[in-house]
């Protein structure tokens, strides 16, 4: 029993450190393609963190949607744009660097004092598969949230049409 607890804690710590490191590498890399590759690692570590939360459906969805679809889109645009100049000397907007770092420090201090002030919350033991399995989630999705599901379909259709209109050549000429 003690061993499984330790294993869970070790895996969440390793995944958390990896997630933070890959997010930092995404934000701070010089070339955008390195950022994109770090972002793929970030998405996979987040899928692992969802697995430690016993949410297999969301973990699979994370890999399919983010690491599959969205990253392919980003990398295609990176290849289309061919950016290999002038990023070296001006990586970021200099006047905003100190402002950004101060803002982040204040944000993290605020949140950590809030989070670690009270008592901790622990998960209850229960039948997780009956609650978060694909069958249960699908049932809730197609009964209680059916209207939202249909609206998301319309939104995606509108996004496809909008993206095609905006990426056309005629619009910008």
């Amino acid at each position: 029993m003690q061993k499984t607890v330790n294993l869970q804690l070790i895996s969440i710590i390793i995944l958390g450190v990896l997630a933070i490191a890959s997010a930092l590498s995404t934000v701070l890399s010089k070339h955008p393609i390195y950022s994109a590759m770090s972002l793929v690692v970030h998405f996979f570590t987040l899928a692992g963190i969802y697995l430690t939360l016993q949410s297999q459906f969301i973990a699979v969805l994370q890999i399919l949607v983010y690491a599959g679809a969205i990253m392919v889109l980003v990398i295609f645009v990176l290849m289309l744009l061919n950016l290999n100049h002038e990023e070296k000397q001006k990586l970021s907007i200099q006047s905003r660097n100190s402002f950004g770092i101060v803002l982040i420090a204040v944000f993290i201090i605020m949140l950590s004092t809030y989070l670690f002030s009270g008592s901790f919350v622990y998960a209850q033991e229960e039948n997780v598969m009956a609650l978060f399995g694909p069958k249960a989630l699908g049932y809730v999705l197609f009964t209680e949230h059916l209207a939202a599901f249909e609206f998301v379909g319309i939104l995606l259709l509108a996004a496809i049409v909008g993206a095609m209109v905006m990426a056309k050549k005629k619009l910008v000429d």
Partner: peptide, 27 residues
């Protein structure tokens, strides 16, 4: 049995959000 507190995940989420804000501000 599950001895990982919710606050660990929330802290991780807050740190990742802060990194994202940092990226939007400085890049």
């Amino acid at each position: 049995m599950n001895l990982i507190p919710l606050e660990l995940y929330l802290a991780l989420s807050a740190i990742l959000f802060a990194i994202g804000v940092l990226g939007v501000i400085i890049r």
